[in-house]
Nucleic acid binder design. Structure first.
Lengths: 211, 211
DNA sequence: TTGGAAAATTAACAGTGTTAAGTAAATTTG
DNA sequence: CAAATTTACTTAACACTGTTAATTTTCCAA
């Protein structure tokens, strides 16, 4: 079955070619300037060829959104060695903020754009990437509660709250709402990290409440 | 000069006609389905007429974004009578969440879509609506600190953090990320309000930390 | 070498934002 | 009141968009 295998491999290669070209356009020209025709130009195929590898444009975006989660997962490998769950939670937040600011296009697809969620509904399946991320967060939050580092309440609720805040920070930043409140040209990430520091120290039972 | 005045009034009427039609389409059909041609159809003018009243599509969206802020301001009138600043902060958050969930299209324009901010840069002016809203929030946060209701830190930072959390909640909800973590068909707003309750009680120096 | 499947293309449809040029209506001027 | 001018509006067009049907080219097996 060498031939069918090779064909499948070739197919995957072209899929990757398309995804890479899409992301390149997305990063360099912005969401609105990613068109099937420009993707096709980039990979030197005709526009309709793209449709032989992806059902429609949203499916391309869905795949990019998945790649984004992979990248984020990779970034979070530095958490594994952190024993203290509150420290881990803090570092998890820092990772999240950094990922969002360094990969605004991926972040957009993962947490802002409608297309990937639309595709999810179409396919009738769960948001596995989102669920997995939320589970990792909730596990750490639960651990913090068990060790008495933060107040014992509903871990689900606290996870959602913490996630909402870091998401709020990143999404305001990458959609140009945050810079409006800072001196011209000021770096956003340090301020965002201060917000996170504040949250963690406010959360913390043993902390000063001052950060 | 009655005639110039009347003409100006007529001009404003057609502008309003266009904005109303745009919002109607935006609410009923979603952002992507608002086209100049459909707006023109609705107001029974030719598509190019729209360009006599607005420079481009983004300018329409910018104006809708401003109307959104007006609506939000109106909603916040119920805050004026609240003496206790922490209560006021809490209620301000509730208003924010409710506004977002009841007017997702306006919210989108105010805090998610890029178009209005793009227009702002083009016009070279500040985000007055955003600044005003942030000032109202910061004033209340400062008052909480002065009265010793919450920890004395940087009011700007705490305001940003609080805003980020409620924005995070609303933006996750209206971009279909929140329902993925709740039972099918569950109402989002109550959960979001619980998150807010948690934040306020965690913030509060006199509180139980349990909500 | 030929038959058929697979891969890629061309042509087309219905739509988009936007502009230039032309027409109809209203107002000012003689 | 009639002519000239300004204002309001429309038609036609450009260069795009996602997507599909029909057609051609390429590849592999018999």
């Amino acid at each position: 079955m060498g031939i069918a295998e090779r064909k499948e491999k070739q197919k995957q290669e072209i899929r990757k070619l398309i995804l890479d070209a899409s992301m390149k356009l997305f990063v360099e020209e912005g969401f609105d300037n990613v068109s099937i025709r420009r993707i096709a130009d980039l990979i030197e195929y005709s526009p309709t060829t793209v449709y032989l590898y992806f059902k429609d444009k949203d499916e391309i975006f869905f795949n990019l959104h998945e790649i984004g989660f992979q990248k984020m997962l990779e970034l979070n490998k530095n958490l594994e060695t952190i024993e203290d769950p509150l420290n881990r939670l803090h570092k998890m937040g820092e990772n999240y903020l950094r990922f969002g600011m360094e990969n605004p296009e991926y972040y957009d697809l993962m947490f802002i754009q409608r297309a990937p969620m639309k595709k999810l509904v179409e396919m009738g399946c769960d948001w596995e990437n989102g669920d997995a991320a939320m589970t990792r967060l909730r596990t750490t939050v639960s651990e913090c509660m068990e060790k008495g580092l933060i107040a014992r309440t509903n871990p689900e609720l606290v996870s959602m709250s913490v996630w909402s805040m870091v998401h709020g920070l990143v999404s305001l930043a990458i959609r140009d709402r945050m810079d409006k409140f800072l001196p011209e040209g000021a770096a956003l990430l340090p301020v965002m990290n201060q917000s996170l520091d504040w949250l963690i120290s406010t959360l913390s039972l043993g902390g000063t409440g001052k950060g």
